[in-house]
Amino acid sequence: MRKQFVVIGLGRFGRSVAQTLSDLGHDVLAIDRNEHAVQLIMHNVTHAVQADAREEETLRALGVRNFDVAVVAIGDDLEANILITLMLKEMGIIVVTKAQSTQHGKVLERIGADKVIYPERDMGIRLAHNLIATNVLDFIELSPDYSIFETKASASFVNKTLGELDLRKNYGITVMAIKKKEDQIVVAPGAKAVIEDKDILVFVGNKKSLTKLPN
């Protein structure tokens, strides 16, 4: 389903979000005060506008209240970040906001941000996991203790069934899906599912369970 997004703040993070959403086929309005930042992305999104998003009249004139989701990607001006988030929420929009710190994030949550993200922190966590277990391809944090991980199948798992491996008992993880060659995905695989060479496992488990898995 095609959606409409407005991305405010076109630094590296905001530009990446805006361009990716556009590449995925959605309408994107990109806003920044800096003319050069707008020029860098103007050919890669639906609309790119040089404007001061701290002005409520400007946001209303651009029709921002009609968009499905707003992403506030401003990171270097906390006051602007908070003010814009507040105005957008008063307009009744779903708002995803970038936070610089936990304290900043708490303020954003208090004023109604629907989702607060910490790009630098999350990248640091991802890097740490990759350093600990080199077969980790990606992960999604569900809580401080549990995450969804995507890993290359260990050589010791190859040609064995999930029943034989009994990963829940031996490693405390539950396999949600197996990504096969040629983009085939086996969702909720049963005990008879066989792990093949170069398979990728998608599982949920405690973060500590990751260190128990063989490489």
Rank of each mutant, 00 (worst) to 15 (best):
L167R: 05
G124S: 12
M123W: 00
A191L: 07
V17H: 04
D166Q: 11
K192R: 12
M91P: 04
L210S: 06
S147Y: 03
E150T: 10
S16Q: 06
R60I: 15
N81V: 08
A113G: 05
R65A: 15
R110K: 14
K180T: 09
S209P: 05
K152Q: 14
R54H: 01
M87S: 03
D197T: 14
P189Y: 00
V49M: 07
M42V: 10
Y171N: 06
K181A: 15
P189T: 01
D27C: 07
N66P: 03
R12W: 02
S16D: 11
V116C: 08
R65V: 13
V187L: 15
F67E: 01
V204Q: 06
Y146H: 13
R15W: 03
I74T: 07
F67N: 00
E150V: 13
V202M: 11
G75F: 14
V187W: 00
R54N: 13
L131Q: 04
V187T: 12
L78M: 15
D68A: 09
T211N: 12
E141V: 12
D122C: 03
D114K: 08
L162K: 13
V6A: 13
I111R: 06
A133T: 01
F149W: 03
E57I: 05
E55V: 10
L210Y: 10
D23T: 11
L137N: 03
L40H: 11
H47P: 00
L213P: 01
I148Q: 05
V194L: 13
A30N: 06
I125K: 14
I41C: 12
P144G: 08
E164L: 11
V204C: 09
V28P: 05
S156G: 02
T134G: 11
L162Q: 10
I82Q: 03
I185N: 06
N66D: 15
E164A: 15
D183K: 14
V95F: 12
D76A: 11
I140C: 08
A153N: 12
A61P: 00
D183S: 13
I125R: 15
L83Y: 00
L167P: 04
I173T: 09
D32Q: 09
K208S: 13
Q50V: 14
R121W: 02
A99K: 08
D138Y: 00
F203P: 03
V202S: 02
T151P: 04
K106L: 14
G190D: 15
Q19H: 05
G124Q: 05
A191P: 02
V38A: 09
N135C: 08
M42I: 10
V187R: 10
V45S: 03
